[in-house]
Design a protein around this nucleic acid. Structure first.
Lengths: 187, 187
DNA sequence: AAAGTATGTTTGACGGACAGAACATTATGG
DNA sequence: CCATAATGTTCTGTCCGTCAAACATACTTT
């Protein structure tokens, strides 16, 4: 019964083994904290715990304790009861996340035509999931589009896609499968 | 100093607030378990805990206990010491994840030219991050490319992008910011 | 059928990310 | 300069996904 080569069949899973089990040195959470830190820094210079908590929609205490861990990891410097600053390493990570976010945003909006409110959410989730290889190619592709090397205008502009809330194939809503799946689950 | 409208400045964060704090009814982990379950089902009919654990690279115990929670959530039915089956709801979710994976894979490989080994990893991470709106549009876009409505061959094929391991702009490696960022952190 | 092996389940513990609340520090403004 | 408000820190507790290991059940094999 093993018609499908196991390697192929299990791709996602095998990959998941790799992806989710390999210790990422910088977790998704750390990436978000650094992104916010760098953004706030650009906007207003000095950053306090309060600012980050506000942006991250998280408790002061949570930020405080995470900052401590991040300091240990060499990603930030946090003066007690004072300002928070990224180290050189933290800065690199934060800026990188921001660039990924922007690249993905641009692609979603300019190429796919995703409504910006949705694009924001998706980009914010995807920014943590994309490898350098993919991001580099995405940027490259985007440049080709922007310089009209690739012409998108020829395509069928039936933007009247099925609802943006539902998966066109399974008619399930939310992040494809979430809410609707559970309601009728009392079986 | 508030030149940048807060709404704009905080996009990522605001979004994150939404994205990561909103209880997804089906967590990323559940999605993976359902994806694997549905895949295994297609390949070999009956699925046991053992199969899932193998594919997910996780302990039997872990699968066992998660399955229990998923059963409560109405996503699977698990006969004690026996077979695992998705409910209708679980099936919808699993199939949806698989389709997302396939769509993303196709895009990464056919459009961006990402090496398939890398594409696998990225697709497996992205499949949990993309909304229906984006996936629908991505599919649509892919169809346009496949039917030659959009011609990609005209683009600059300098596939000699900077290394696939590094972010072209920050020279940081890994999932853009991970490993390299930490080594020199003993400051 | 008895023994041995392969599968499953349960329990206890853990680390990460978070909230809440008690406590500490700094800022402000009368 | 002191009282109060605003900030920040610490501690305790929770939930999730995981492992390890002890225990239970099912399957084989002789």
């Amino acid at each position: 019964m093993d018609i499908v080569p196991p390697r192929l069949r299990l791709l996602g899973a095998v990959v998941r083994g790799y992806v989710l089990h390999t210790k990422k040195d910088v977790s998704e959470t750390y990436e978000m904290y650094l992104k916010v830190l760098v953004q706030l820094r650009r906007d207003k210079g000095t950053v306090r715990v309060r600012d980050m908590a506000g942006d991250l929609q998280v408790t002061l205490g949570t930020v405080s304790s995470l900052l401590k861990k991040m300091e240990h990891a060499g990603l930030v410097v946090h003066e007690r009861y004072g300002a928070v600053q990224p180290t050189a390493a933290g800065m690199r990570v934060g800026e990188c996340v921001i660039r990924r976010f922007e690249t993905i945003m641009a692609f979603l909006i300019e190429v796919l035509g995703v409504p910006s409110a949705i694009a924001e959410i998706d980009a914010c989730r995807m920014e943590h999931a994309v490898s350098p290889a993919t991001i580099n190619r995405l940027k490259h592709f985007l440049r080709s589009v922007q310089s009209n090397e690739i012409d998108l205008r020829s395509r069928d502009e039936s933007t009247t896609l099925s609802s943006d809330r539902t998966c066109s194939e399974c008619e399930t809503t939310g992040v494809c499968g979430a809410e609707a799946a559970l309601k009728p689950a009392n079986e």
